[in-house]
Design a protein around this nucleic acid. Sequence first.
DNA 1: TGCGTCACGGTTGAC
DNA 2: AGGTCAACCGTGACG
Length: 343
Amino acid sequence: MEPAFGEVNQLGGVFVNGRPLPNAIRLRIVELAQLGIRPCDISRQLRVSHGCVSKILARYNETGSILPGAIGGSKPRVTTPTVVKHIRTYKQRDPGIFAWEIRDRLLADGVCDKFNLPSVSSISRILRNKIGNLSQQNNYESNKAVHHPPPQPSLPYNHIYSYPSPIPAAGAKVPTPPGVPAIPGHMAMHRIWPSSHSVTDILGIRSITEQQISDSSSYPSAKVEDWSTFNRSNFHPSTSPVVNGMDKAQLEQEAKHAQTLNGLPTVNSFVSAPSMAPYHPPTQVSPYMAYSATTSGYVTGHTWQHPSGSALSPHSCDIPASLRFKSMLTAREGSHPVTASVL
DNA sequence: TGCGTCACGGTTGAC
DNA sequence: AGGTCAACCGTGACG
């Protein structure tokens, strides 16, 4: 259940306890760091605790990914994809087979050893939940030739826990698991600064804005995690109306939200925490929406609406910070066209 | 003052 | 269906 309220940290930034920061913020942290902004300044500017900034940067340096890790779930201890596949095979060959027989077979065939042999109840659960009864299985068999892709190849189950496709500083590669769409570049960004010299680009706003459309994660919550979540749940892109692991309708809706925002970049629209009503969503809008991980999204949006009517902007920058930052950029980059969107 | 680290309270999702 | 557990999260405090 998503919390109805965000919390405000010591810096005045809004966060949701237990949930990752929105991608836009994470991305921005990395971008600012790449500009040479000190972590402490990033922390103040984005109103994110320095511990968090430190952690995100450290992770980025280590993995090349800005994404949070996969939250929740647990590693399959015994019911690995391979085991499931074998159980399915046994069941297909002998629909009347008992769970204990399957168990014996797994052991006899060397699929499992005595240490990772599933219990009879586990096998029953697999039969019930993952394989279904025989008639369903037969339907599956007959249908899959028409619509369904073949069962997923068994994957080493710890791939699930590997970082979702970090893009590696050195250009290397964490392979995208079969059946799993590659992570958009902005999610595991290249460590190459955009070539465009507009401040918008320098600030990464364009990439973030583009993210509005492709980034499911208005708030990473279920969204970002989807990159890993659908890994875990054997998501298969060709069997469901999803786009990159997102429900397409939801994606479109969120994209529409993003596009129908007022469009003002609001980097300067910070409302200090003390002036904020304790997160007062007008409706049952999730605070995640407020985070809408987009540059304009995380500063505007239909979400954190201050009772006075001004949009709240969790994690947005205050004016002095922005100006300070801008001057830093100017000094650093020389003169670049300053797009109005930033100011 | 800046930053790495860690305890804490929280969320999540497979089992 | 609901509890458990182990993963993750960001904050805040400490050194």
